[in-house]
Design a protein around this nucleic acid. Structure first.
Lengths: 145, 145
DNA sequence: GAGTTGTTTTGAGTCATTCAAAACAACTGC
DNA sequence: GCAGTTGTTTTGAATGACTCAAAACAACTC
């Protein structure tokens, strides 16, 4: 059964990063995986469908732990709640709608490499580069010109 | 006197964007101009030095109005309060310290143009591209290896 | 199967920011 | 110059995402 296999894989991934396997962690991983960009509240709603006793605080704890472990990626666009996605490790970028806050993935900017290198680092030890495109999503364009 | 000239220029800039000239606006403009990246609280502190009756709420109002008018630029890195800078119109980018939240300007990334063009816009009407580099500033590196 | 260590829950608290209404001041036209 | 209008500032309260802390609990180790 596909569900069983997914769960075993999820358990293995948790163990691989040194995290204990718990029901809330499996539920959160499952809730986020393949469902785009969810904020803590949306994750909580999804998680409660199969694990009704889960507190929002736990969802915050778990999301934080999973993001720190690299199993999830956290994005935090200005003006919205933080969102989490399951697509990690490929340093893709994001499009954020200024109207409704919707987020879409951008596989890669044209030219890729240049975007990771600032021309002068001002003494900073640069670890990551984050690219965010702001615009209006198709729905918001349709809704108000 | 330089101060006089600066004030007249500030008044002209406010009028040019259709905003009424008020003491709080002149004070905020003066507080931010040439002083890097300040959050609302830091601006408030600076403004109060010369206009002690100014409320924090007014600072928020003014910063919002000036940013919307393009006289200031707002940056809002994840995990810090929003910051405002007087350098506008050149689409420069930022380095943000993951330790202390310090912000530094990056004149331009190497290769410039590619960074403004996502490879697929997913139906979005893209208006701006924002590039943020995350790392540790010189002080934080010195403080903790 | 008991102990240890890390996780989840519960409950309260923080902080940047926003909302709303009343007091007030800048610009317009006379 | 002065009254009216419109936009701004103040005051006070509220919101919402998120964090802190301590107690209850459950995974993994031996």
């Amino acid at each position: 059964m596909a569900t069983e296999i997914r769960r075993e894989q999820a358990e293995a991934r948790l163990r691989a990063v040194g995290l204990k396997v718990t029901a809330p962690r499996l539920a959160v991983l499952d809730a986020v995986t393949g469902h785009g960009h969810l904020d803590a509240d949306a994750v909580h709603t999804r998680v409660m469908a199969e694990l009704p006793a889960t507190s929002l605080q736990s969802v915050y704890n778990v999301l934080g732990a999973l993001a720190e472990a690299g199993l999830l990626r956290k994005i935090d666009p200005a003006g919205s709640a933080a969102r989490y996605e399951s697509r990690t490790g490929d340093n893709h970028h994001h499009l954020v709608c200024t109207g409704c806050g919707a987020v879409a993935d951008v596989d890669c900017v044209v030219g890729e490499a240049p975007c990771l290198t600032p021309s002068n680092t001002g003494g900073f030890a640069v670890a990551t580069a984050e690219v965010t495109f702001w615009g209006r999503c198709a729905e918001c364009q349709a809704a108000s010109g």
